[in-house]
């Protein structure tokens, strides 16, 4: 299967500090790829490179390339970034619905990208909320503020926003770390379902989560991608001593 995302020789500096060192990574289409590692290892930084969200931080310097569907996103002009971020959506650690109604949250993406006219929008909102199992819970509360939802509902809503713009890649940065175990399992179940239509990259410090949901796993340490492979292989027969030490809980 072809690679949806190809990262080659990616280096990133925050000022003088090098946060990513020569990272090479190939993410397959319609797969869940997990990035694990202890805090500060660069996994979130790597994730944010995939939709150029690091551009927003002062003093960041990047070399190397990130190709998505063969297109080098670091050669895109600034005006093309909205197109990139429509294709590559991000789910944040803390659910961040806008201070708008449930409906307007979902309709936000399609509206800014002029994807749907007024009549199509209703159908699109319903379809997107159904895709994340929120429709039945919220169909009578579409006009209420999204800030009144539970944390799990908020996180689902944030995923529905990406479904609505027809993103192809979902980047998830510790999407469950603000949630309780039951809600976490539900989001994981949702991820498995979404895998049919989306390429998902998830950053997590929870190794069980990586083992449960992903097909491929990368282990990062101090800015390097130490090992990358099929999830069962990484967890049962890691090739690198450092990976083994991490997954057996010797550090991290």
């Amino acid at each position: 299967m072809s690679a949806k995302i190809e990262v080659a020789k990616l280096n990133l500096w925050y000022g003088d500090f090098q946060a990513l060192i020569d990272v090479d990574l190939a993410v397959r289409e319609k797969t869940i790829t997990a990035l694990i590692g202890s805090s500060g290892c660069g996994k979130s930084t790597l994730l944010r490179c995939l939709d150029r969200m690091n551009d927003r931080i002062d003093g960041v310097r990047i070399t190397g390339s990130v190709r998505i569907d063969g297109e080098d996103i670091y050669r895109m002009k600034k005006a093309e970034l909205p197109r990139l971020r429509k294709k590559v959506g991000m789910v944040f650690q803390r659910p961040n619905p806008f201070p708008l109604s449930v409906y307007k949250n979902v309709a936000f993406g399609p509206t800014v990208h002029h994807q749907a006219n007024h009549d199509e929008l209703d159908a699109l909102v319903e379809e997107s909320l159904r895709a994340v199992n929120l429709w039945d819970e919220l169909k009578d509360r579409l006009d209420e503020s999204a800030l009144g939802l539970s944390l799990e509902q908020k996180q689902r809503l944030c995923i529905a926003r990406l479904v609505a713009v027809k993103s192809e890649v979902l980047l998830m940065d510790e999407p469950c770390s603000a949630l309780d175990p039951v809600a976490t399992l539900k989001i994981e179940e949702l991820m498995r379902r979404l895998r049919a239509d989306f390429t998902i990259v998830i950053v997590t410090h929870n190794m069980q989560q990586a083992a449960r949901v992903s097909q491929e796993t990368g282990f990062m340490l101090l800015g390097e991608l130490v090992e990358f492979g099929r999830t069962p292989d990484i967890f049962t027969s890691p090739r690198d001593k450092r990976t083994e030490d991490y997954i057996t809980g010797r550090f991290g």
């Binding site: 927003r56 909205p82 197109r83 971020r85 429509k86 944040f92 961040n96 806008f98 936000f108 993406g109």
Partner: peptide, 11 residues
């Protein structure tokens, strides 16, 4: 986070 969310959606 509102701003980050909107930018990340391509706004």
């Amino acid at each position: 986070e509102y701003k980050a969310g909107a930018i990340a959606l391509g706004a």
